[in-house]
Design a protein around this nucleic acid. Sequence first.
RNA 1: GGCGGCGUACCCAAGUGGCUAAGGGAGAGGUCUGCAAAACCUUUAUUCGCCGGUUCGAAUCCGGCCGCCGCCUCCA
Length: 483
Amino acid sequence: MKIYNTMSRKKEDFVPVEEGRVKIYACGVTVYDLCHIGHARSAVVFDVIRRYFRYKGFDVTYIRNFTDIDDKIIKRANEEGIPWHEVARKYTEEYYRDMDALGIERADIEPRATEYINEMIEMIKVLIEKGYAYVVDGDVFYSVDKFKDYGKLSHRSMDELRAGARVEVDRRKRNPLDFALWKASKEGEPSWESPWGPGRPGWHIECSVMSMKHLGETFDIHGGGADLIFPHHENEIAQSEAYTGKPFARYWVHNGFITIAKEKMSKSLGNFFTIRDILERFDPEVVRLFLLSTHYRSPIEFSEEQLKETEAGVDRFYSTVMRVESYLQRMSKKEKDIPEQNRMEELLSGFRGRFEEAMDDDFNTALAIGHIFEMIKEVNRYLDAKPGGKKAEETLNRAMAEIRELSGVLNIFQRSPRQWHLSLLKTRKIGITEAEIQQKIKERQEARAKKDWQRADAIRDELSARGIVLEDTLQGTLWRVKI
RNA sequence: GGCGGCGUACCCAAGUGGCUAAGGGAGAGGUCUGCAAAACCUUUAUUCGCCGGUUCGAAUCCGGCCGCCGCCUCCA
């Protein structure tokens, strides 16, 4: 497997610290508000990375943290007039609601910063002892000048960083780039006792502590959104490596941004869509496929248009499943020699290899999805040749099983066509039940039996006006939600 | 200002030295159908922002130019 490492700016062969095991730490969210689609991207990307490692037979430990104490949470608490831990609790719950919907599996360990205050204090103590940190009025700062490799992840020298600095300088810092390990709390703010007085941890220290505690001093993959490269991950490296004297993470994996009108989606620009907003109008599987249709490091331009196109893609899959199921129900038992049989078998036998090749190349989900759609096309083509007999039945079953299994690694295409369409009925807010649709189909069937085309078409038009499409097949009439 | 990335058809998007430049969406024509729908077939890039260069051979490597974006600040 090859993985692009932000540290080396190259794709590297993946060699785990411990054979057969992979330890992943991905930075999660600060729970102070609803998540937007950018958070969803990061979560989906690492969810797939984790699933793919597992598929490859690795014993995976995956950690995703929650930052449950920081300035934004405190600010939010003041705005809403509730305690800070209520804010954290509430938005952690909302996070799960969104991520569960998107098919993101829970991480193996989901640590919260506030559960590790003591460990953070211990680590800060050692950093002070080792001369990497200093105390000023109850604050503790990390001294970046003491860490010779500072800037190695973001590929910037200290001078370059300083030259571009746009922040107001805290005069108490020895170097403007020094960052807080511990922040003294002001009156009324949440605080924990520490050797430096009451305060709370800086942002970066939690990830160093929690990853080390659960994954050891050196682990395999550390990642998150590309905006975390500097300063967050740079600072984590400085803290952790100063503390242990060992390399922190071996592979740094960062996902690209979601853009709107070519600009990065962000809170401050106000150009963001929450996951909640989007799930009001699109099925979660559509969102998931959309996010995986582009390589994880490239930017994705978010648009309604693109989601609609993706929706058509999901529907294409489930339509094919419907078609296969319906065909299998009453296909001819007679063996039939068709040229498509060889073609199908050949394509099918290479499918898994193509899928893995794509995924082994830095998790190229876009290409992998391309291969899945190619197989969907081939299955349809095969059906058009009207194959018959035991061999055809086996071929169809095998093809669908394989498509299902490999799609499962991406956690897409796992439902039944019926579930998909029932879900669409809900998402589209079409006020009609399946029973009502079946009733209409029955009425229309009777009209068709009498060759009363006018009546039959009227029923179909009526349903069509409500967003339901009917399909007459040899095996009966099927319904779908119009895409 | 410094550092980095991107520019592939009408849209999205793989491909980073050599088979016909994947796949999806959209449009047009056709097959199938009572008519449809779905599906399939054909069609829409002799060409990969532009200009040079290296090479037997480049979308892929090098140089220049144009355009867009990101990071250097909290941010997924």
